Computed example of a mutant assay.
Amino acid sequence: MSIGTGIVLFVIGAVLAFALNLQVDFIDLQLVGYLLMGAGVLVFVIGLVLMLRKRQSITTVHSGVDAHGGSVQERRTSTTPDDVV
C-alpha cells in the first residue's frame, strides 16, 4: 500500500508543480508540489525497503524414540508473518 501511496503523492505533487499555473496569495502551489513529490519518493523508497526486507524463518527439530524403540524426528518450519515487526 505504501508504494501506491508514494506514487499518488508524487503524481499529485507533479501536477501542482508543473501543470497548474495558478497564483494564490496565501500559499505557493509550486513549493507544495515539490514537497509532495519529495514525500512521495520517500514513501515509495520506504515501501520498497519494507517489502524487500529479509524474512526470518525458524526451523525446530525434535528428536526422540518412539514406543517401539525407533528413532523419530519432527521438523517444523515457521516464517514470521508480515504484520509482525
Rank of each mutant, 00 (worst) to 15 (best):
R53A: 14
V85A: 15
R75C: 01
G40N: 05
L9T: 11
D82I: 05
D82L: 14
P81A: 04
I27P: 01
F18L: 09
V65N: 00
V15M: 15
V32F: 13
S2A: 08
V65G: 00
G38A: 14
G40M: 03
M1S: 15
V32I: 14
V11P: 01
P81S: 02
L31I: 03
I27S: 02
D83R: 04
S78V: 15
V84D: 13
L35T: 02
G69R: 13
L42H: 12
V84S: 11
G13P: 04
R55D: 12
L22C: 02
V11H: 06
L50W: 04
F26A: 06
G4V: 15
T60Q: 10
G69W: 02
G6K: 00
T5A: 15
V84L: 10
R53P: 01
A17T: 00
P81E: 02
F44Y: 10
Q30T: 06
T5H: 14
L42K: 11
L31G: 01
A17W: 02
G13M: 03
M1A: 11
R75D: 00
D66W: 12
I12E: 09
S78F: 15
V72H: 06
T5K: 03
V24R: 01
T59S: 03
R76G: 07
R76Y: 09
H68N: 13
V41F: 07
M1T: 10
L29M: 13
V11W: 11
L29H: 08
L35K: 05
L48V: 00
R76E: 13
A39I: 10
D66Q: 09
N21K: 14
L20G: 04
G13V: 14
F18H: 15
V61S: 04
Q73D: 10
K54E: 08
V24L: 05
A39V: 11
G4D: 12
T77P: 07
V49L: 14
Q30C: 06
F44L: 09
F10N: 05
V84H: 13
A67D: 13
F18Q: 15
R55A: 12
I7M: 08
R75V: 01
L20Y: 05
I7N: 11
D25T: 09
D66F: 12
M51F: 08
D28L: 03
V15D: 13
M37A: 10
Q30F: 14
F18P: 06
L42D: 08
T79S: 01
S57V: 11
I7Q: 11
L36Q: 06
Q23S: 02
G4H: 09
F26R: 10
S2K: 07
V49E: 12
G6V: 01
L50D: 07
L35Q: 04
L36M: 11
N21Y: 10
E74G: 01
D82T: 14
K54N: 11
L31V: 14
I27L: 03
L31Y: 00
Y34Q: 14
F26M: 06
V15P: 05
L29N: 07
L16E: 00
G38D: 14
I58W: 02
V8S: 15
